[in-house]
């Protein structure tokens, strides 16, 4: 019995030692490769004039800091602007432009332009099925001076054929939001 107990203790010890082997490998931080930190929308007036650039940049990704929003200037009333939007991940070095990837997967993405009284946005691009993506857009500013908020929303897996979605109405789009940024916009 005594010998038995000793052998039990030995077994326990061996078991513990065997399990304590360290298998540490070099520890590396995770590169947040999928995060969109920066959304840039550039609007060029069709007849020439100063470009308006809207930028939202959040360099800590899902971290506590809020995005820093900048608007380079005001829009001119009753003017048509050609808009192009880019998405970038600046958490990796060098920064990664995600725009081309969104275009390549255009049938699974759509950008919505939500505002009230700032004018009209109409899509100028389309995916392989002929549905809009929204990476480029024609913005006809309001006829009279206005100010308000422009919210750009990138939706992943939207229901593109649902009512109103192709016209830019987000209500029936479903899917999940990959980016949603808001800019204070002045039309004068």
């Amino acid at each position: 019995m005594k010998r038995f107990k000793v052998s039990v203790l030995t077994l326990l010890t061996v078991g513990m030692l065997a399990s304590c082997s360290d298998d540490d490998t070099a520890i590396a931080p995770v590169n947040e490769e999928e995060v969109i930190t920066t959304v840039t929308a550039s609007f060029s007036p069709v007849g020439g004039g100063s470009v308006v650039t809207l930028t939202s940049r959040d360099l800590d990704g899902d971290g506590p800091q809020a995005p820093v929003v900048t608007v380079s200037g005001n829009f001119a009333a009753n003017t048509v602007y050609n808009g192009a939007i880019t998405f970038t991940n600046e958490m990796v070095n060098p920064a990664e432009d995600i725009t081309a990837e969104i275009f390549a997967e255009g049938d699974h993405h759509q950008i919505f332009y939500q505002q009230n009284g700032l004018g009209t946005f109409s899509y100028t691009d389309e995916d392989e099925d002929g549905n809009p993506i929204g990476l480029t857009v024609a913005y006809t500013t309001a006829a009279i001076p206005a100010n308000g908020t422009l919210t750009l929303t990138l939706v992943h897996h939207p229901e593109k054929t649902a009512a109103g979605v192709a016209e830019g109405n987000i209500a029936n789009a479903g899917g999940s939001t990959d980016a949603q940024v808001s800019f204070p916009v002045i039309v004068q």
Binding site: L12, M16, S19, A28, V30, N31, E32, E34
Partner: peptide
């Protein structure tokens, strides 16, 4: 009775997402 346990959690860094739970050892 007596009991003992050694535990190792490995959070793969290949996910491209900062892991919810880190790599750790527990005894």
């Amino acid at each position: 009775g007596v009991s003992g346990a050694a535990q190792h959690n490995d959070a793969s860094p290949d996910t491209g997402v900062r892991p919810l739970i880190p790599t750790y050892h527990k005894y």
